[in-house]
């Protein structure tokens, strides 16, 4: 395979033909944040979180979907890049309705993680919020589209990995929404024992339906304070 000479953050390195900027950066120990990108899915470059500066390019470019070229000069953490990334996440959060305190996925949410990492801070912008009622008709999956950031990972994962092809994007602009059939609440038998989409969703928009607590899971009642029976251990 052809070798390609690249300058990344002032360092001269070599990459392979067909490699993306993101992949090359990773190989050289440079961490570029991503959101819509997932190593197991085809890149679509929709979120722009991974932007970098490329010398001679009019705009910042998405590193997850831009292949390296001979002699390319890349800056992954210049002030311009950092500022843009921060703004992108801030804008995503502006339309994202959801209260992290109440969200089951708060601790594993990639959006929240990114916001913290990029030091986005408390919200400054007051924009329209995307609000949808929670869909929990499916016995297997709960969809809370108010938390969806339209990264399309579920669309791709369901199509490419689960091979069930249930989702797509409907409407346009601010109204864009991940739809099932003619915009129905998700309720497919194909979702049984699958969980591919829930594991790919970076936010709390898709989650596995929790089993309601059963008697045997609850264990013995715990009684505290005076009059509590002796515990036999």
């Amino acid at each position: 395979m052809k070798e390609i000479n690249v300058t990344i953050n002032g360092k001269k390195v070599t990459g392979r033909e067909g490699q993306t900027i993101l992949e090359l950066a990773g190989e050289n120990g440079i961490d570029i944040p991503t959101l819509c990108y997932h190593p197991e899915l085809p890149p679509i470059g929709s979120c722009r979180v991974c932007v970098v500066e490329v010398e001679g390019s009019r705009t910042l470019v998405g590193s997850c979907h831009t292949p390296i070229t001979e002699g390319i000069v890349i800056q992954t953490h210049s002030p311009k890049v950092l500022e843009a990334r921060k703004m992108i996440v801030e804008l995503l959060l502006t339309s994202h309705c959801g209260n992290c305190f109440m969200c089951d996925k708060a601790n594993i949410c990639e959006l929240r993680g990114l916001a913290a990492e990029l030091e986005v801070g408390i919200p400054r912008l007051m924009g329209k919020k995307r609000f949808y009622p929670v869909e929990d008709v499916s016995p297997y999956i709960v969809r809370d589209l108010s938390k969806c950031i339209l990264c399309r990972r579920c669309v791709r994962a369901c199509r490419e990995i689960a091979k069930k092809n249930i989702f797509d994007v409907g409407y346009r602009g601010f109204d864009s929404k991940i739809v099932v059939d003619c915009d129905r609440a998700l309720d497919k038998e194909a979702c049984r024992d699958c969980e591919v989409c829930t594991s790919f969703c970076p936010t709390g928009a898709l989650s596995k339906k929790k089993e309601p607590f059963k008697e045997d899971k609850r264990g013995k009642p715990i009684v505290v304070g005076a009059g509590a029976p002796e515990q036999d251990t």
Binding site: N165, D168, Y171, R172, D183
Partner: peptide, 25 residues
């Protein structure tokens, strides 16, 4: 009509969600 979109999806071998996505775009 929805029936039409469903039939079309079937005959083109794509998902109804995709047909609906294009129709609403």
């Amino acid at each position: 009509p929805e029936d039409y979109m469903a039939q079309l999806a079937e005959s083109l071998d794509i998902s109804l969600s995709e047909v609906y996505g294009v129709a609403t775009f």
